[in-house]
Design a protein around this nucleic acid. Sequence first.
DNA 1: CGAGAGGTTGAATCGGATCAAATCAAGTGG
DNA 2: CCACTTGATTTGATCCGATTCAACCTCTCG
Lengths: 282, 282
Amino acid sequence: MVKNLPVTVSNEAGWRCHGNLWSNLREICELLHIPAPACSGEEEALFQHVRFKAGQRVHTIGQDFDSLYIVNSGFLKTVLIDEYGNEQVLSFPMKGDLLGIDGIHNQHHASEAVALSDCDIILLPYKTFAAMGRTYPELENAMYGVMSRELVREQSMIGMLSALSAEAKVARFLTSLGESFSQLGYSGKCFNLRMTRHEIGSYLGLTLETVSRTLSAFNEMGFISVDQREICLLDTNALKTLRRLPPAKARSKVTEKVTEKVSVLVGKKLLPQWSNETVVAA
Amino acid sequence: MVKNLPVTVSNEAGWRCHGNLWSNLREICELLHIPAPACSGEEEALFQHVRFKAGQRVHTIGQDFDSLYIVNSGFLKTVLIDEYGNEQVLSFPMKGDLLGIDGIHNQHHASEAVALSDCDIILLPYKTFAAMGRTYPELENAMYGVMSRELVREQSMIGMLSALSAEAKVARFLTSLGESFSQLGYSGKCFNLRMTRHEIGSYLGLTLETVSRTLSAFNEMGFISVDQREICLLDTNALKTLRRLPPAKARSKVTEKVTEKVSVLVGKKLLPQWSNETVVAA
DNA sequence: CGAGAGGTTGAATCGGATCAAATCAAGTGG
DNA sequence: CCACTTGATTTGATCCGATTCAACCTCTCG
């Protein structure tokens, strides 16, 4: 296994910066939260870091696929572009996330990854990635695991998009963002949104106005404090349990009356009361 | 590589039927539409078929993961269950689809697969699956490819859920179902829906009433003919191009006036006119 | 300072959900 | 065979949450 030579990431000129750092396999495994294989000693592969400035694209739709990317630092968004040129935000990757999996399928990227802040990205050439699985069988399982995790994440995204109200979507977005931050060692309570209201709205299937209004409402209710992109979660429990009553179609008879009561508590006026697990369970 | 012994698929008793067929690697690759590796001769693995009757579960949420499943025949749905017990339909797998990938992540299934008709499913033990990648390196790439394909499918599902109108969702559902059927050699024009309106609604993020109403409207407009679950697509082009105007937020200036005009054509009353590519491009 | 992007807020509208009722298909048991 | 049940579907009337449209505000940066 040899050191990967610097490769040109894209044919687009001018926006590409070469980094000067290299990571070994152990560092990469740490980043991805997977167990590092028993080290085979010295002849280790090294993986190149590449830096992207805010606004730059790590990969674009249709671009030839030959490498995966691991976020070492910084914040990004991945987007789909529809037939009208509208962006559909799919995720907001940050440190430890794996990018570019969608390109494996037909050797072309199906989505676009854009840096929302200056980013340090580790290049993981696909050939090397595949070879690693064969060289370190323990790793192979972990790699399938990382892809599986992505799949599960998107599944729950689908569930959220089609089942939750606007308030619940925004609330979940905030709490899960907070959890991500605290897992990275930052404060899970107070953090800075790296994305615009528009991007949040696209991600959640809402308009930017609805996002803004909902944040204001949460602020007024004391769930959070907002100052532009500076957010503090004051009542994460309230946010986590805030819901609307589920579509009646599939509601089980047992919860029928209970959820009706909940609907009053979590009514449209966003009263200071809200549903939570214990109420539902009662 | 030895013949896989019959394994108990679930701890739930009574719903499990043993099949008596076995498939080899080549048959499985054909089914998954991936190139079969150069055969290594006789000492081939054989994979057990299991039959499920309509309504039976192939795997349930939380169940220990140890096997993937390939659909050989029949129709299924995969669902998520939320905290209220509501089903969220994620997909309608059919012949050639791979099930259970979501279980790799943490060794437990995150979703549930339910047979909508009698099904013949091939058991693909995960250990064997992983070993195959190492034994046949050409296969490994294809396996990552299959998982990547799933991911891309779910991404476009997310885009569809948050960007399209009810009519467009139902229209796309019908056309893509038709395409799946014709790829399997069945008629892509006339087919039988294996799922209820409720399940379609859950899949598309709509209520069953909206699905029913939309089908009726399409029927009235001559796009399709409906008789219960018997559907015939009469004007697939109309269905494919039927849209609503995209959220104004991200609309580019060039298409602004054009899409406004389109909005009139595809207005809420479902007039006999509708948008299509040529109109938009004009 | 002015321009422009991002953000907030209000008022009106509309699309899809909800509620309700009738119809239809398929059993089930007397 | 018919009365009765049960689940799926259709259709109508109404309601409400989120979008849309619009005005205004607030930063930042040249």
